[in-house]
Deep mutational scan, measured.
Amino acid sequence: TRVETATETAWISLVTALHLVLGLSAVLGLLLLRWQFPAHYRRLRHALW
């Protein structure tokens, strides 16, 4: 049971790290898009909202 718990903890930390990385890359990508294509971003936002 001790090994299982350790594996579970490792998986949880791995998944958390993955989610953090994905979230950060998504935010960075959005910022980059907004910085590179302001007109396109505004049009996209206008279409979405």
Rank of each mutant, 00 (worst) to 15 (best):
L33R: 01
W35V: 15
R43H: 08
T9H: 11
T7M: 14
W11V: 12
F37G: 00
V3H: 00
L20F: 11
V15D: 00
R43A: 12
V3A: 04
V15T: 05
S13C: 13
V27T: 11
S13Y: 13
L28C: 03
H40M: 11
V27S: 09
W11H: 09
A39N: 14
P38E: 09
T9F: 11
T16N: 04
Q36D: 04
T16L: 10
L32T: 07
G23V: 14
Q36M: 15
H19C: 06
L44H: 01
P38K: 15
Q36L: 12
L18E: 03
S13F: 13
R34K: 15
W49S: 00
Y41P: 04
V21A: 14
R2T: 14
S13M: 12
S25Y: 01
L48Y: 03
L44T: 04
L48A: 07
R45N: 00
G29Q: 00
T16Y: 04
T16S: 11
L24K: 03
W35E: 11
A47D: 03
H46C: 13
T7L: 11
G23H: 05
A26Q: 01
L20A: 12
W49Q: 05
H19I: 03
L44S: 03
L48E: 05
T7I: 11
R45K: 15
E4H: 11
L31K: 05
R43E: 07
R34M: 07
W11Y: 12
L30E: 02
V21Y: 03
T1V: 13
L44N: 02
I12T: 11
T1Y: 12
R43F: 09
V27K: 01
A17W: 03
L33Q: 05
S25G: 05
L30I: 12
T16H: 04
A6C: 09
L28K: 06
E8D: 10
P38S: 14
W11A: 04
T5V: 03
I12E: 01
L31N: 02
A10Q: 13
H46F: 02
E8Q: 03
A10G: 12
L18K: 02
R45G: 04
F37V: 07
H46D: 10
W11N: 05
A47Q: 09
S25N: 12
A26Y: 02
A10K: 10
S25W: 01
L31R: 04
H19L: 01
H46E: 09
H46R: 10
G23C: 13
R45S: 06
G29D: 04
T7C: 01
G29L: 14
R45L: 07
L48M: 13
E4I: 11
L31G: 03
E4D: 10
L18W: 10
L14N: 02
T7Y: 12
R2G: 10
V15L: 11
E8W: 01
L48P: 01
L24A: 08
A47S: 10
W35F: 15
L33N: 06
W35M: 15
L18A: 02
V15N: 01
Q36R: 15
